[in-house]
Write a protein that binds this DNA or RNA. Structure first.
Length: 314
RNA sequence: CGCGGGGUAGAGCAGUUGGCAGCUCGCCAGGCCCAUAACCUGGAGGUCACCGGUUCAAAUCCGGUCCCCGCAA
């Protein structure tokens, strides 16, 4: 074991990396030289300039924060710091070669899928959309590609039938926080075996767009049920009712095998529950939210919107 | 000052030429029925977000405050 502290730079932006950052800060083996995160952005209804979640945490621990617009232009600065290790968790930029070469223990990335499946940004949602029964985190040594580096370790979790994108996000985030430090220490002590990724099994996920949450009722109820869970809580699954955006927050996990009795997208009552006809089978709505209104149980929603039953969602 | 919707009974919503506050569901009581989540009758339940103004009279008009939400980012 090294008797000197490992001089480490942490790079990340959203909440996802917080547990990892905190575990590294708390671990006496690491000396966090500083944190690199995205520049502050205007956020929310009031367009308030807001710090990234990682910046808030770093600041609260009095850790130096840098927010370069382009990482490439910051390579020289990093070099001067002489880091032994760089840990990247969800930064949203690819690290240039000039930076990858700096730390002697290289750059390590923690990714929210079981690579080589679901490289890229929407890895967590992809696992739910595809109906996978498990997902996990991959800790890997970075190379110049997007999530293509050799794997140091993987940790799996099961995807429950009621798991949403947000829940998996949190579970994986916590899992990463627990496992990151010990796995990285093993790696530095040369106790881990690096396995190259099998590129033939690789898949790529693109960054989610708001429109990715738009429901196409032509699809099967099974697919839409997964979409609703995967997109929760951002960007959220939505449809259109009376020219207003209607968010579908939660559906019943049990699909109704009902076909040919209603038009696609038609809302109907079934066993005192609100259902929508899909391209294949039908889906029972549980929680919905109309634009400008609060979250509502679907069955309560119809009390004040008598025309909902029988309407066609588009 | 980014744009926009909203706050009315336990829930979901109507209700602005100012004039006794309504609907659907739920709840309570009774009735019908072999029976019911069905149906009928009756009932309870509101400081109309808050503060101030105009008026004989404000949920409604005017000014201000708080809170919730959609878009955009």
């Amino acid at each position: 074991m090294t008797n000197k502290k490992i001089k480490t730079i942490f790079i990340g932006t959203p909440d996802f990396g917080i547990p990892v950052l905190i575990s590294l800060i708390s671990d006496k083996n690491f000396d966090i030289l500083g944190v690199i995160t995205q520049p502050d952005k205007k956020v929310g209804r009031q367009q308030i300039l807001t710090e990234t979640p990682i910046k808030k945490i770093a600041s609260s621990y009095n850790i130096k924060v840098w927010q370069p617009k382009k990482l490439k232009e910051f390579a020289d600065e990093i070099k001067k710091l002489e880091p032994d290790l760089i840990v990247v968790v969800a930064y949203a930029q690819i690290l240039p070669k000039a930076i990858l070469e700096i730390p002697k223990y290289s750059c390590i990335n923690i990714h929210g899928s079981l690579l080589p499946k679901y490289r890229g940004a929407a890895c967590i949602q992809a696992a739910i959309l595809n109906g996978d029964e498990e997902t996990g985190i991959t800790i890997m040594k970075m190379d110049e590609g997007l999530d293509t580096g050799p794997i140091i370790a993987q940790e799996k979790i099961a995807i429950e039938t009621n798991d949403t994108g947000e829940k998996i996000f949190n579970k994986l985030s916590e899992l990463a926080g627990e496992k990151a430090a010990p796995i990285i220490l093993d790696y530095i002590d040369n106790k881990s075996e690096l396995k190259p990724q099998d590129n033939s099994q690789a898949s790529l996920t693109k960054l989610l767009d708001k429109d990715d949450g738009k429901i196409n009722w032509q699809k099967s109820a099974t697919e839409i049920e997964r979409l609703v869970r995967a997109m929760h809580s951002w960007p959220g699954a939505f449809t259109n009712f009376n020219s207003r955006t209607l968010k579908i927050l939660e559906t019943d996990q049990n699909i109704l095998s009902i076909n040919n009795r209603h038009q696609t997208g038609e809302v109907f009552l079934h066993n005192n529950e609100v259902a929508v006809q899909c391209g294949q089978d039908a889906l029972v709505l549980k929680k919905i939210k109309l634009e400008g209104k609060n979250e509502t149980a679907a069955i309560d929603f119809i009390n004040g919107h008598r025309d909902f039953i029988g309407s066609i969602l588009r």
